[in-house]
């Protein structure tokens, strides 16, 4: 029985949260890796793009709520999501036209583009704060739990509670759908294949008559969609705060690089590697340990690392990968 309770506690506090967080990181890392493979720079504005997209989704959510529109048990934000994607994609396309296009034309070094993305980051940062402020915002509504602690107890009779929040299920299902759609697009459609070709070998893609402007446009639209979805899922699951999204840059970059930057499968793998390490190392294992080892009452929390140091986990994994396998777990590209 204790073993089962230990498993339940593990699932409740580590497996479920880490899977949801991993899915959010994976979507973020997919956006970073896509911009990296097509536009060939690390986009420092990606965290703020996520914040901007989520901000728009929240505004639309409030609008729909004020009209009395809802999705019943599902959060209204899901209804607002398409509008957030459209606005964010439009902003990214506008930014590309005004800012990035010039540097592509002069074939600027990647590090210059990184610096340019810092300027874009400032502007997006300000836009998001203008729109929605700096405060913490909770915007999930609808049914809170798929399985609540009481239902679980009635169902299983176990003393150890397990809850499955609806935002966690929504995160995992949405992320799965988005990933399937993205891979279908990249591997099965003409436009998707032309994007992979452009990423693989830009000169040959041009020789083959692939239109670079079209590839770039589609890339920004997908990036906007991925960023908005990732940001909204993260915000639903936890809460929205503009600065937190900026800080997500580090685990997201780490996920993309650990998986092998430029490789979409790698981005997903990296997202889960980072999330499971982070949650696993910062979880207080006392409960699980007490179940598994009888007659032992640990003094501390049996927490390997305080949650304040969760960034240290991403960082350490990043450094280890850079030292031992700079191309990432799945071989990414080195431009």
């Amino acid at each position: 029985m204790d073993v089962i309770n230990a498993l339940v506690a593990l699932t409740n506090y580590v497996l479920i949260p880490a899977t949801a967080y991993g899915a959010q990181l994976a979507l973020g890392a997919l956006g970073v890796t896509l911009v990296y493979s097509i536009l060939r720079f690390s986009n420092f504005a990606h965290g703020d793009t996520m914040a901007f997209g989520t901000g728009i989704v929240i505004l639309f959510t409030w609008l729909f709520q004020s009209w009395g529109i809802s999705l019943g048990p599902l959060p209204t934000a899901l209804l607002a999501l398409p509008f957030g994607i459209i606005v964010t994609a439009a902003l990214l396309l506008g930014t590309d036209r005004v800012v990035y296009k010039f540097y592509r034309k002069v074939r600027a070094a990647p590090v210059i583009l990184v610096m340019v993305s810092v300027g874009v980051m400032f502007v997006m940062n300000a836009l998001t704060r203008f729109l929605i402020g700096v405060d913490q915002i909770t915007f999930d509504d609808g049914e809170r739990f798929v399985i609540s602690a009481r239902q679980w107890r009635d169902m299983t009779g176990l003393s150890e509670p397990l809850t499955l929040r609806s935002t966690q299920v929504i995160t995992i299902v949405t992320a799965l759908l988005v990933m399937v759609a993205l891979f279908w697009f990249l591997n099965r459609t003409r436009t998707g294949k032309s994007m992979r070709a452009f990423s693989d070998n830009e000169d040959l893609a041009l020789l083959s008559g692939i239109n670079p402007d079209r590839v770039v446009t589609v890339t920004w639209i997908i990036t906007g969609a991925l960023a908005t979805i990732a940001g909204t899922l993260y915000g639903l699951d936890k809460s929205f705060k503009a600065f937190t999204y900026f800080q997500l840059l580090l685990p997201i970059f780490a996920a993309a690089i650990v998986g092998g930057i430029g490789s979409p499968v790698g981005a997903i793998l990296g997202g889960f590697v980072i999330s499971f390490s982070e949650v696993g190392l910062t979880y207080a294992w006392k409960k699980v340990a007490t179940y598994l080892i009888p007659h032992w009452e640990p003094d501390g929390l049996v927490q390997l690392l305080s949650t304040d140091y969760k960034f240290a986990v991403s960082f350490t994994i990043l450094i280890l990968v850079l030292i031992f396998k700079p191309t990432g777990l799945l071989k990414g590209k080195i431009v």
């Binding site: 003409r190 032309s194 070709a197 693989d200 893609a205 692939i210």
Partner: peptide, 21 residues
């Protein structure tokens, strides 16, 4: 071209498809 004349992470069939783009 003499070098870099294929799309390395795409299948042979996709390479040909891109040729016909």
């Amino acid at each position: 071209p003499q070098v870099n004349n294929v799309f390395p992470t795409m299948s042979v069939e996709e390479n040909l498809e891109m040729g016909a783009f």
